[in-house]
């Protein structure tokens, strides 16, 4: 992956000629952003997936990103901890900052970045290890603890925060793959928070879960928002409405609208948002 903020892109130029990328309506910016993105363009080879997106994520807020398949919401999310680095032919332009620090700066340590900006994926992906080792993996890797007792405490604390402790405390050393889907996802969240991230990115964290497991994760998201900034991509509009403070609507790679979630689901500002929310485009 290459990144070249100065590059003049033909697709962007073409849109500029057609009267420019339509400005995002609503309130994409916040007073004290935890993460901040300005002028993001993302390309897969020749194809542009994201067009001039600017957006802030505040600390201790849940930002939901919604939109039809292929609208670029997951691509955008993956830029926030440089997960797109691993994709061949993917090129990211624009300024992405975490606490004002450019995360695409060549001096930025990507491993450290991903510790600060954790990610939870669509399908629960526990390591083929014990429950305990799944959570202990990150702290060990990053050298966060010195003693076994500290590690025990951290594992317990993380599992408690993920709402999983009571269900697994008696079988910490059994394989994580023996857990149910919902438990596995909460384990992944515990693994993510064990290394004390500042931001948690969630890419459709409930799409493989049943309604009860989903409700537990949603409950957890609300609790986690007391300590972390959370950006969540979801296909479930009800989920976005339930868990998030602000909602961003993406359409064909563009950020159409960002507004308070209460507003977006009752009286959205942009007609594309309205059409998507009410099930007129999909």
């Amino acid at each position: 992956m290459k990144r070249d903020p100065q590059s003049e892109n033909p697709a962007t130029a073409a849109i500029a000629q057609q009267g420019g990328v339509p400005a995002t309506v609503g309130e994409p910016f916040v007073a004290e952003p935890k993460m901040s993105v300005r002028g993001a363009n993302v390309f897969y080879g020749e194809k542009q997936a994201i067009f001039d997106v600017s957006l802030d994520i505040a600390d201790r807020e849940v930002l939901a990103m919604i939109g039809p398949s292929g609208c670029g919401k997951s691509t955008f999310l993956r830029c926030l901890n440089r997960m797109n680095d691993t994709i061949e032919g993917c090129r990211v332009e624009g300024r992405f900052t975490l606490d004002g620090e450019d995360i695409y700066d060549p001096r930025m340590d990507v491993v450290e970045l991903r510790a600060r900006v954790g990610m939870v994926f669509q399908k629960p992906n526990p390591f083929p290890k014990s429950i305990y080792d799944n959570v202990a993996y990150g702290p060990r890797l990053h050298g966060l603890v010195n003693h076994r007792s500290e590690l025990d405490e951290l594992v317990e604390q993380s599992l408690r925060r993920a709402g999983l402790w009571d269900e697994v405390k008696d079988r910490l050393h059994q394989p994580a793959t023996g857990l149910s889907g919902g438990q596995q996802q909460r384990l992944c969240i515990a693994r993510c928070i064990a290394i004390s991230p500042e931001v948690i990115l969630m890419d459709e964290p409930c799409s493989a879960l049943d309604p009860i497991a989903t409700a537990k994760i949603e409950e957890l998201i609300s609790e986690l928002a007391e300590n972390y900034a959370i950006a969540i991509v979801t296909h479930s509009m009800q989920q976005a409405a339930r868990v998030s403070h602000r909602t961003a609507y993406f359409h064909l790679g563009r950020l159409v609208e960002v507004n308070a979630t209460d507003r977006v689901f009752t009286a959205p500002e942009h007609e594309l948002t309205e059409a998507y929310i009410t099930g007129r485009i999909g």
């Binding site: 509009m237 009800q238 977006v264 689901f265 009752t266 009286a267 309205e274 929310i277 009410t278 099930g279």
Partner: peptide, 10 residues
């Protein structure tokens, strides 16, 4: 049945 939103909800 539909969990209407936006104008439908209104």
């Amino acid at each position: 049945r539909r969990q209407p939103a936006a104008s439908d909800l209104r």
